[in-house]
């Protein structure tokens, strides 16, 4: 099966981590600004307690280093000259960045070292444990493989649905109808997908054009301004792909029973696909809504064609006796 969207996981930079964590991690930059373009080559957190004690064997130099309550207390317990020496050694390893948690204030010596070695020194209000968890999630988001695909994405009946098809076939009109039915738009015409660490595929809009939509004949509209805040959604796991295809191009490949589920592969993730022949006048809105509800049922284990098949087979066996 061809993979329709492939992009390698890219290492992220301290700058991007800082931007993403400004609100969510209450991160701020204290010193070492010149090192903001430094790459974080391992999306993980390390607490450099052993390093501050002078032990550098197996030191994970590619990770974000977090100085928490324990590290800070140990560091402050050292005589001043040793303190400086140990801190300098930590900076000299050129870790991507060092974060002081729990509102600890880096001393002037640490700030000077951050500038000297171009290693950004950051601060957070958060307690170390929750910070490490939240920072790991943000790092996973930043380094997840991502790609842009030509599809509109909606949340329908709790399911994340990519609607794809050739230009002008009615993706946006279908989305608009679904919005009128009370469902939410995730992205119009261009959806950014990323693969999370747990193997799930998540879709969202490209920030610059988020929630704007092109309606042929009308032009560009801003969906939440017209339909309200509930008509849009920031991101959603991709559960299903609905492919709109001109009926003239479909031939007899259309599945009539629902037994042969097709799959589309994005970033190595297989997503169930429903191919919909589009004929003039077909009500795509109700159709897509029903597709979403049916797949939601199937996910919960109730599969209509199997149930019906069982029922008929049981009856036929009885009648044949």
């Amino acid at each position: 099966m061809p993979d329709d969207a492939k992009t390698a996981a890219a290492p992220t930079t301290v700058k991007k981590f800082l931007e993403a964590g400004k609100k969510r991690l209450s991160l701020s930059l204290v010193a070492g600004e010149s090192g903001l373009d430094r790459q974080i080559r391992e999306p993980a957190i390390n607490r450099p307690g052993l390093a501050l004690a002078g032990f550098y064997k197996f030191f994970p130099v590619k990770r974000i280093q977090v100085v928490g309550h324990a590290e800070f207390s140990y560091y402050m317990s050292l005589p001043e000259d040793l303190r400086r020496e140990r801190m300098e050694r930590l900076f000299a390893t050129r870790v991507p960045c060092i974060v002081y948690s729990r509102r600890r204030k880096p001393d002037d010596a640490a700030c000077a070292l951050a500038n000297k070695y171009s290693v950004p020194l950051l601060r957070t209000q958060m307690i170390t444990g929750p910070f490490a968890n939240a920072a790991t999630i943000i790092m996973e988001e930043l380094t997840a493989p991502r790609a842009r695909i030509h599809a509109t994405m909606m949340e329908v009946a709790g399911m994340g649905i990519l609607i794809e098809g050739p230009p002008g076939i009615g993706k946006s009109e279908t989305a608009l109808g679904l919005i009128k039915h009370g469902y939410a738009l995730v992205a119009d015409d261009c959806t950014e997908v990323r693969r999370n660490g747990d193997g799930s595929l998540v879709g969202s809009a490209v920030p610059l054009t988020r929630f704007y939509m092109e309606m042929r004949g009308l032009g560009i509209i801003h969906v939440p301004s017209i339909f309200g805040a509930a008509s849009v959604r920031g991101e959603k796991k991709v559960d299903l792909v609905v492919t709109l295809k001109r009926q003239s191009e479909c031939g007899d490949e259309i599945d009539r029973t629902g037994e042969n589920v097709l799959y589309r592969t994005f970033l190595g993730v297989d997503v169930p696909q429903v191919v919909v022949p589009v004929a003039p006048g077909r009500d795509l809105v109700n159709f897509v809504e029903t597709v979403a509800q049916e797949f939601s049922l199937r996910l919960s284990g109730q599969i209509a064609h199997i149930d019906l098949d069982e029922r008929i087979k049981r009856r036929n066996v009885q009648l044949a006796q």
């Binding site: 992009t7 842009r148 030509h150 230009p167 002008g168 119009d188 015409d189 261009c190 490209v206 610059l208 054009t209 704007y212 939509m213 092109e214 560009i220």
Partner: peptide
């Protein structure tokens, strides 16, 4: 682009999008 039958894509910085979609073209930044 839409006047032509050919499938048209536009790529910048590794992002490739449909050349017949306004919204997609705008995402290229």
């Amino acid at each position: 682009a839409s006047r032509h039958d050919a499938a048209i894509t536009v790529e910048k910085d590794g992002n490739s999008v449909s050349g017949k979609s306004i919204m997609a073209l705008l995402t290229l930044e």
